[in-house]
Design a protein around this nucleic acid. Structure first.
Length: 278
DNA sequence: AACCAGGGGTACC
DNA sequence: GGTACCCATGGT
């Protein structure tokens, strides 16, 4: 256990941002994250001052990278031109958002089962999969995300018991393809963005949007710009149909996450009303 | 209690 | 290359 000062790091905004599904709020206001077969609890004991439950070595060896704490997020905001009022409002509303460096496998499966589900529903689905097919993490009550082999072994009926519905075959087939080695996530890491997108789209249940989410959140390809229903609304309401992602080479995906977060807030509706009247 | 959710596959044209 | 329609199920 140790404490640390960190700028641009908001546990709540990250946990509620819909990029990860295994970060939960505790009754004391702290957050517990499960990733990479590890568990950590983080409390903001005063503004920008955080207490980590793990050892310093585990932080340096894993969590620091996981939470992308080596990246200066103020530099992203600085790229936004003053006239883009929406994006500036989004940066204000989603202060402390970061793009986590999650594992490709877990991210891929999580977003395959995300389709036509709300974020709370995705969380409970993922948790059910972990409890049923993952292995327990020693010294904690948490379960690791199941391996490709474990999900490939699962029956469709078992997967449906985790509320996967019609997505159960997608998850099973993708797990089989990866467990067999017909698709290597390690080799996929070497592909350039466009080739990676096309490769991911070959997997069952993976279209442009799911592939983009896996790229952004699992492969940390920050140029990937996932377009879901919320982003499409924002593009129509704020950008005349299409966000100019080419204006932000290599980091449009980061901005996308701020946009997504703000678009879902009630305060966006109010912000838009007051803007349209003034 | 209806409504909608970080969409993809398929059958058309 | 676009579009209409279906797909299960939970959270609000």
């Amino acid at each position: 256990m140790f404490t640390l000062s960190i700028e641009d790091f908001c546990l709540e905004n990250i946990a509620e941002s819909g990029q990860c599904f295994r970060m939960t709020k505790e009754t004391d206001g702290s957050y517990t994250a499960v990733a990479g077969g590890r568990v950590v609890n983080i409390a903001e004991i005063r503004p920008q001052r955080f207490r980590f439950s793990c050892a310093k070595a585990a932080f340096e060896g894993f969590w620091k990278n996981y939470f992308d704490l080596g990246t200066d997020y103020a530099a992203f905001r600085a790229q936004v031109p003053p006239e883009d009022l929406f994006l500036h409002a989004a940066f204000k509303a989603a202060r402390g958002m970061r793009i986590l460096r999650q594992e490709p496998w877990e991210t891929l499966i999580s977003f395959i089962l995300s389709q036509r589900k709300s974020i709370p529903a995705i969380r409970s689905c993922v948790e059910a999969l972990c409890r049923r097919f993952g292995t327990g993490i020693a010294g904690t009550a948490a379960y690791a995300f199941p391996t490709p082999a474990a999900l490939a072994r699962a029956s469709i009926a078992e997967l449906k018991e985790c509320a996967l519905g019609y997505r159960a075959p997608y998850v099973k087939k993708t797990a089989e393809i990866i467990a067999e080695g017909a698709f290597s996530l390690d080799r996929a890491e070497e592909l350039p963005d466009e080739a990676l997108l096309e490769a991911l789209k070959e997997l069952p249940g993976v279209g442009v949007k799911v592939a983009s989410c896996a790229m952004l959140f699992g492969f940390h390809r920050t140029a990937a710009f996932p377009r879901d229903v919320w982003i499409l609304r924002v593009e129509n309401e704020e950008y005349g149909g299409r966000f100019p992602d080419e204006r932000y080479p290599g980091c449009a995906g980061v901005l996308q996450q701020y946009m997504f977060f703000f678009a879902r807030q009630r305060q966006y509706r109010e912000w838009r009303l007051s803007r349209d009247q003034g």
